[in-house]
Nucleic acid binder design. Structure first.
Lengths: 256, 256
DNA sequence: GTCTATATTATGATAGAC
DNA sequence: GTCTATCATAATATAGAC
């Protein structure tokens, strides 16, 4: 009957963090996603989700066939990153600009949707051993290969160090940015005696661009300007990813 | 007797993977630790552990009061790292050597005991929200402060960049090394079309030292030699950490 | 030190009333 | 779309025999 017809409407225009969900179904997904991200998928029970939504566990099965089905649907939120990564890697710009754009894209996207990417990050051993979820890994390696192409081009053009280990570097960048986003978003995995000041996403991006370019650039080019503005321009035409998420650009983190 | 005697003796004296356990209790702890590391603490059931040990779940409670008690005991394996970090940070050597030593110490230790540190890394949200486990975070921040002192001294001496953000940098280093160790130890979180070659721990250490020094050093000092040998010398007098773990020094990883 | 047996609670999931 | 009620299974944990 009518209830299925609503599925088409994924999201309303303004979807803040825990914000308004267009449909009941979406609301449940958001609540579940937050729990999966913070406690882990397996550690979250169907009853936890139901309770957080304010209904009984049995009622969830009116909306979703299984707990896993919820997760699959939540994970679709990660698709744009893979698509955008391939787009940017193949864009018409010099390798430095593309590399910067890829890093910014990644950091902004992970931070813009901390719930989805937190789930991916924090449940990676789970995803790795469940064949039903191997598309998660596949998406990652797709982006990985695209970035490799950019690095290799930069090396050929003499922009990046000839002795750069492309594979090690991309792996490092991915872990670096995932860790940074995780830290920035959630704030805090260390309680310090001298609590540090807060950081804006902008500062965090600059810090990591500098790190990346120091690591990657050929000798003598280390002081060249980092093409951040050009990189942002490359990203501008991309479909606005997680709508509403961008607003949080000036978030801050208290701990490390 | 015959029928139940079989069950107990699942494994002979030569027990696969992570080395001989002196006592039954230790053997159980090792098995449990491996499961906690790979599946997560909450996702591992007492029955899983018992089955892997070769006994019934009820029998575990002869050795341990609760599942959490096992985890607490396993986590004690992480104490040496904190102790050694403080020692090295306060050692009599220039800040560059100490910084290199701290990075090597951390990477080697995480790799030498991937099970314990894998548990810490992969269950960090769990630890964060359980007050009974907050000593895990406290240990981390203790090391954090020690490393901060080294960086600050290096800045004062003009070895490191004056504009270096100490807090951001240490957080980044910690995440970087934790991620690297996780990747190196477990091999693989991406399946690539062009599978990369394997890496020795030595190469991985060199790669990260170079990254760290490129990030941290004052302008003009980037080509100075990295004091790896001196750093290793600083580490030599430390008590040999997890017995038997050192042997695996030349492990390799297939994926990223 | 392990077994058998069991208590208790929590889990994912279903059926049918409203 | 939610509730009530329930099932089957799995969870952590215990008691006492051997």
């Amino acid at each position: 009957m009518g209830e299925r017809a609503k599925r088409g409407r994924r999201r309303g225009p303004g979807r803040a963090r825990s914000g308004e969900a267009a449909t009941r179904r979406e609301e449940i997904l958001q609540v579940a996603a937050r729990l999966f991200a913070s406690r882990g998928f397996e550690a979250t029970s169907v009853r936890d989700i139901a309770e957080a939504v304010g209904i009984l566990s049995g009622s969830l099965y009116h909306h979703f066939a299984t707990k896993e089905a919820m997760l699959h649907e939540i994970l679709r939120g990660a698709e744009p990153l893979t698509r955008h990564t391939t787009q940017v890697a193949g864009a018409d710009a010099d390798p430095e600009t593309r590399l910067a754009a890829l890093a910014i894209l990644r950091l902004k996207t992970l931070v813009a949707d901390p719930v989805v990417f937190g789930i991916i990050y924090n449940n990676r051993t789970f995803f790795r051993e469940r064949p039903e979820f191997d598309y998660v890994e596949r998406a990652k390696s797709e982006g990985f290969e695209a970035v490799a192409g950019v690095l290799e081009e930069g090396i050929r053009q003499g922009l990046f160090r000839a002795d750069l280990d492309v594979f090690l570097t991309i792996g490092t960048l991915y872990r670096l940015l995932a860790g940074a986003a995780d830290w920035f978003t959630r704030g805090g995995f260390v309680r310090l005696e001298r609590p540090p000041r807060e950081y804006s996403l902008d500062e965090v991006i600059d810090y990591h661009l500098e790190l990346i370019f120091r690591l990657v650039r050929a000798d003598g080019r280390i002081d060249a300007p980092i093409p951040r503005a050009e990189a942002e321009a490359l990203l501008a035409p991309l479909e606005p990813d997680q709508r509403g998420a961008q607003r949080r650009e000036v978030r801050a983190a208290k701990n490390a």
